[in-house]
Amino acid sequence: MHIPENYLSPETCAVVGAVMVPVWLMAVKKVREQIPQERLPLLGIGAAFVFLAMMFNIPLPGGTTGHAVGGTLMAILFGPWAACLGISVALLVQAVFFGDGGILAFGANCFNMACVLPFSGYFVYQQLKKRLSSAHSTLFAAGCGAYAGINLAALCAAIEFGIQPLLFTDGAGQALYCPYPFWISIPAMMAGHLTLFGLAEVVFTTAVLAYLRRTNAELLPASTNSLLSTPNAQHSSRSVYALIALLIVGTPLGLLAEGTAWGEWDPEELASQEVQGTALGYTPAGMTHGFDFAALFPDYTVAGLPDAFGYILSAILGAALLIIVFKIASSLIRQPARY
């Protein structure tokens, strides 16, 4: 769902980016008010979860891949505003260091995955949780929220793709940016997300939630457990780190998926892409002469190292960077002593 560079026109990027600026400002304000300082580093851990979830590529018949996001999980753990901030930072790390998602398209990616996804997912989760009251209602509500969230986000991305050929074409009628209109992009995106990727998001969200609840981890919000003062806090934080380590070691599984996600092809790949039986046959002009940003480690690989090893190192580095960012943020807030 990461929209690459030059698939959206700069105008679209500017508009969506402008929408995101007040959202980010509001998110920073809300996080400062709502999240106690000692929970801020945990937000980094949550962002690391999201980062890792997005590294597990799942193949779909037909050659495309996709992944879970974990945005609803974060919204349940920290609230939607904090989730918005955390996912945005994770997306920034992906864009800058690993070239996943464009720099210009950063605003659009954040709008889909850091704004639409957690807020809609959290809304569904809340509504369902209020209506249901059985023992497993929380997990069920979380699963439904995750499914709704990722599909709405995918729909937004598809709309952003689909709007491009309608608005931006050159004299010969060839698209300047993403060449697929609504009637191709929406079914293509939603087919994957309504089935496998949505399922992956549901499984990821509920499995992590269940695991955290069983280990009584400190990541859970104060309302669902009374942990912060329990004696096995040490044990629970260890279990969170263990889960992260497990995810990191498992990331090379994401390499098994050979294809590229829908809408994330390289420009050359795009020209030979077959949709509805015919190849596109040209590379849109906006892509060949577009903005180009050289990420440090494109596609999570390191030149000179085996792919799987590079993938693991990328996972480690990305997760650690996110934790560092939020730890530093927490240190910038003055800490009152406890009496």
């Binding site: 590079g310 580095l317 934790i323």
Partner: peptide, 17 residues
């Protein structure tokens, strides 16, 4: 090799955490 630097950087980032 930048790859070696990258590997060391990942390790140091974990310790920094």
């Amino acid at each position: 090799h930048s790859a070696y630097l990258f590997a060391v950087g990942a390790g140091e980032a974990v310790l920094l955490c």
